[in-house]
């Protein structure tokens, strides 16, 4: 069976990483920024799984790492969304441009 070469998968994950960074810097909606961060974390997951399957199939370090990253990303999203809800109650908006009480 012809396998997809490792370099293609790494290309996808790196592209996803930079799409995430671009999204974080260009989006002004807090929920979209949170989604961009999740993209970054998922690109890391792809990296780990690909490296583990292609290069080091005899040990499971990479897979364990992925399980923990998924769990922690969920926890992070939960706390971040709670904070966003609280921010909405205080500011009546989830646009970062409106959350500028403190500067310099």
């Amino acid at each position: 069976m012809n396998q997809v070469p490792l370099s293609h998968i790494l290309f996808v994950s790196t592209a996803l990483f930079f799409i995430g960074i671009y999204g974080l810097f260009s989006r002004r909606n807090l929920v979209c920024m949170l989604m961009a961060v999740e993209l970054i974390l998922n690109s890391v997951n792809i990296n780990f799984v690909a490296f583990n399957k292609y290069l080091y199939p005899d040990r499971l370090d990479g897979f364990f790492f992925v399980v923990f990253i998924i769990t922690i990303a969920a926890a992070e999203a939960a706390v971040a969304i709670a904070i966003i809800i609280n921010l909405y109650r205080n500011h009546r908006s989830i646009d970062v441009e409106d959350a500028t009480n403190m500067k310099f």
Binding site: L24, L34, I83, N86, L87, N90, H91, A99, N101, M102
Partner: peptide, 9 residues
């Protein structure tokens, strides 16, 4: 809350 969102992001 503004500080918290800046911190977590």
């Amino acid at each position: 809350s503004e500080a918290a969102i800046k911190f977590i992001l």
